[in-house]
Write a protein that binds this DNA or RNA. Structure first.
Lengths: 143, 143
DNA sequence: CTCGATGCAAAGGTTTTGCACCAGG
DNA sequence: CCTGGTGCAAAACCTTTGCATCGAG
């Protein structure tokens, strides 16, 4: 989804389209596949729009977009959460617990396992994308 | 592992066995399968030992036990981390993102999938137990 | 006696909230 | 206009750290 799509989503829900929100949407739309946290989103949004945007506005806007269903936040480790456009959550995150290296995994490598889990434990669905899957990468294991 | 086992582990590594640590180990050993966070550990440890234990001591002791490899902390959601004795981490956690309901899943339901992931993405190992797996439970889906 | 562990207090890092003002529709 | 969004400041929340003192070995 491009920035205009996000903006249209806001407007269609009766929410106001402000300069800050426009800047944030532009950053999100431009950050294809990147792992942006709130601080980085703010940095880029301020730079791209030349206006001052408070960190709380970033969080509030993320919150709104999440409620619209077009955005999700993901925890890769102990640091700040990163966000993904819903359209781009077609992958899981595999993270090395020692060095933090992150690998994007196509969903279809895990959907079968997750569907089995859902079935066995009476869950309607299991997507598992809110948290990373943790392991140890090759380099960290051999050093 | 019982409380004495934990205490012995400390001593064998040259670490000191104090009243606070004894109380914390007793709580951990007694909390079979429970999801204890630092605050609850403190509450029980103080109650069980009738001494004053600071929250930082809880965290420092968790840290020590984690370094000894007998304990791990796990994130089930946005709240505080919970801890598990290593001997009891034979399961994954499946959590409903709406109501927080948590189901313990035997590891063997996911090991195969995780081994495949490790193989494909050059990870030495994938245990995935540091974070919960998120989904939507039946009740939340139908309401 | 010595060094590790503790309590206390303060800070750190991320996220949330209260409030008065501003601006989109 | 009028309600919702914003910046600012402060708090909330979990966790970590500095420091003087205490106590295990």
């Amino acid at each position: 989804m491009d920035a205009e799509g996000l903006v249209r989503g806001l407007r269609s829900e009766g929410m106001r389209v402000t300069a800050a929100r426009r800047a944030i949407c532009a950053v999100l739309a431009a950050g294809h596949g990147e792992h942006l946290d709130a601080t980085e989103i703010r940095r880029r949004a301020e730079q791209g729009s030349a206006i001052n945007i408070d960190q709380s506005t970033i969080y509030r806007t993320i919150d709104v977009l999440e409620r619209l269903g077009v955005l999700h936040h993901v925890h890769l480790g102990h640091g700040p959460a990163i966000v993904h456009l819903s359209a781009e959550i077609n992958h899981q995150h595999l993270v090395c617990e020692h060095c933090g290296k992150t690998v994007d995994i196509p969903v279809d490598e895990v959907t079968e396992a997750f569907e089995t889990l859902a079935l066995r434990h009476s869950f309607a669905s299991v997507h598992g994308s809110h948290f990373a899957i943790v392991g140890t990468c090759h380099e960290c294991a051999t050093s």
